[in-house]
């Protein structure tokens, strides 16, 4: 089974407090710690488990700059055999469609049975996987939280509202967006990362991928961020202040008044 997993380098919101910069045109990026998009770790883990079962190769691919090398290596330390970096100034400022266009180029350069993305990334779009599938004319399912291998096809579970699972049969090749909770992504230690530090990761440009530079990046983007802003706060919460003891006393009063104690 040849599996391509799309991964994105994102600011780690558990490690940083995300705030707007003073110009209001971006988040404050100085000193940000970056990591792999949470969902993508589940996608890579799922791919590795499949290959462990039936053989094959897991390739991780990202559209990013030179810094994105580090997240590819992290996923390779998990067990992905190959990495692929799609890097070109022309990709800068891409919207989701631009990213999907670059990834389509990479998919067409290989031969994959399965293509995984995360269900969504830092911007909460959840768009790249579905777009990529449509561009490739491959079947797609989003929010996948269960995969059973069949012959030339898969039985998959999709997470829908209320904890229900929508079971589908889908033919291969296909694109699946993977939801958290499908597995428990394995731990990656420093030693694992060191092991893959020497592996060469091919870099492909728009030209290498056969992607028209005008269809990607800021030039091709039809969805553009205008600015960041702090929304006007509504009433907001009644904040309890004072020493911990005072806060607890107030809280207990509130709990009592509301039938909580």
């Amino acid at each position: 089974m040849e599996i391509l997993v799309c991964v994105k380098r994102v600011p780690d919101s558990a490690e940083n407090e995300i705030v707007m910069n003073s110009a209001g045109n971006d988040i404050e990026r100085d000193d940000l710690v970056y990591s792999v998009n949470e969902w993508d770790n589940y996608a890579v883990e799922e791919a590795i488990q499949i290959v462990e079962k039936v053989g094959g190769t897991v390739t991780v691919v990202t559209v990013g700059d030179a810094d994105a090398d580090e997240i590819l290596r992290r996923e390779m330390a998990m067990g992905a055999e190959k990495g692929l970096l799609l890097q070109d100034d022309a990709f800068e400022g891409s919207d989701c469609k631009g990213i999907a266009t670059a990834l389509k180029g990479a998919v067409e350069k290989g031969k994959y049975d399965l293509i995984f993305t995360g269900a969504q990334a830092d911007e909460g779009a959840g768009a790249v996987g579905g777009m990529l599938a449509a561009m490739l004319d491959l079947p797609y399912a989003s929010l996948v939280n269960k995969i059973e291998l069949g012959d030339g096809k898969l039985t998959i579970g999709r997470e829908i509202e209320g904890g229900n699972r929508e079971m589908n049969e889908i033919s291969m090749p296909c694109v699946l967006s993977i939801q958290t909770g499908i597995n428990e992504p394995r731990y990656v230690g420093i030693r694992g990362i060191r092991k893959v530090s020497g592996v060469e990761i091919p870099v492909m440009s728009a030209g290498d991928l056969g992607v028209d530079a005008g269809s990607v990046g800021a030039a091709g983007a039809k969805v553009k961020k205008i600015d960041y802003f702090v929304p006007e706060k509504g009433e907001g919460a009644e904040m309890l202040e004072g020493s911990t003891e005072e806060i607890i006393d107030k809280l207990i009063e509130i709990l009592k008044a509301n039938g909580g104690l």
């Binding site: 919101s13 995300i18 705030v19 909460g124 961020k225 960041y228 802003f229």
Partner: peptide, 10 residues
């Protein structure tokens, strides 16, 4: 973005 921590105009 980031689960509601920042807002954007698009």
């Amino acid at each position: 973005e980031f689960g509601g921590v920042v807002s954007t105009h698009v």
